[in-house]
């Protein structure tokens, strides 16, 4: 897809992203360009700095250096909620759902920035409020449909099984109406059957919602199975990038994973 879109502006451009925690260099000179519609994987051993990259892109950490551009606009310095509103949705490595609320409410919360009515409308409980509220509920239910969660919509989310919770998180991230979706280890803790389902689902949402997806994953078979391009990190630096095939044969990557990665893939 990206080969014939050279003239198109990239969706996300990360340049020279660097993060120091005190004296510790978590991420050093991270560069990445993602074009519209791509499905890109970011892999690396534990502590390689993948999640730190996510947290910098989404504004939870302020980068020490570097720029993050979405559609050509530099996002560094914006608050996380503004970055989300600008079009980057995300999920979390250790699920962060709104535990006490129902599945539907979890998703509806994410519509807040596009609710289309303000506090005064809701206090007066006027026509605009009820109309928009119906729309939000409808859209949320559509998303739950897509993620095959409809029958859980009134369940309290903390009572759901792990795999379902991961899917709720994806549905919630999509409710932010992002252009770029960042998935942080979406398959963690899932069984093989669920993983296959999840891979289908990720493909499906990418194609049907015209999303661009960047995902962090440990499970090689997920990354190799669905990603078109892969970037590998180790000790805060990029050590390789390329297609799944190229990555599989990359010596540096195999070394970084101490053979584990290679064994998994082979």
């Amino acid at each position: 897809m990206n080969e014939n879109s050279m003239e198109v502006l990239p969706l996300l451009e990360v340049e020279g992203l660097t993060k120091f925690f005190g004296g510790l260099r978590a991420v050093n000179d991270f560069n990445m360009t993602i074009f519209k519609g791509e499905l890109v994987g970011l892999i690396g051993p534990n502590g390689a700095g993948k999640t730190t990259v996510f947290n910098q892109i989404t504004g939870i950490y302020l980068p020490t250096k570097g720029t993050v551009k979405l559609n050509g606009t530099n996002l560094v310095g914006f608050e996380p909620h503004e970055i989300t509103r600008a079009g980057i949705g995300r999920t979390f490595q250790n699920i962060r759902l709104f535990n006490g609320l129902s599945v539907l409410d979890n998703v509806r919360i994410a519509f807040h920035s596009s609710a289309g009515y303000n506090l005064l409308d809701s206090i007066l409980s006027n026509e605009r409020y009820s109309q928009k509220e119906r729309e939000i509920t409808g859209q949320a239910q559509d998303l739950l449909d897509v993620m095959k969660l409809s029958r859980f919509q009134n369940e309290i989310v903390k009572n759901l099984p792990y795999g379902e919770q991961r899917r709720v998180e994806i549905a919630r991230a999509m409710a932010c109406q992002p252009q770029l979706l960042l998935l942080d280890e979406p398959a963690a803790g899932m069984n093989p059957r669920e993983i296959i389902q999840l891979m289908d689902m990720i493909h499906f949402i990418r194609d049907n919602f015209k999303l661009t997806i960047l995902l962090i994953e440990h499970q090689m078979r997920v990354v190799m199975g669905i990603c078109e391009r892969i970037t590998v990190m180790d000790f805060g630096e990029i050590i390789a990038r390329g297609t799944p095939k190229e990555i599989q044969d990359n010596r540096l990557v195999i070394e970084a994973y101490l053979g584990k990665g290679a064994a998994n893939v082979a």
């Binding site: 979405l70 559609n71 606009t73 310095g77 914006f78 509103r85 600008a86 079009g87 015209k210």
Partner: peptide, 14 residues
């Protein structure tokens, strides 16, 4: 889809 345009108001980092 939302565009970034409404956030293109310049910000100043203090």
């Amino acid at each position: 889809m939302q565009s970034v345009s409404k956030h293109q108001k310049p910000i100043t980092i203090v």
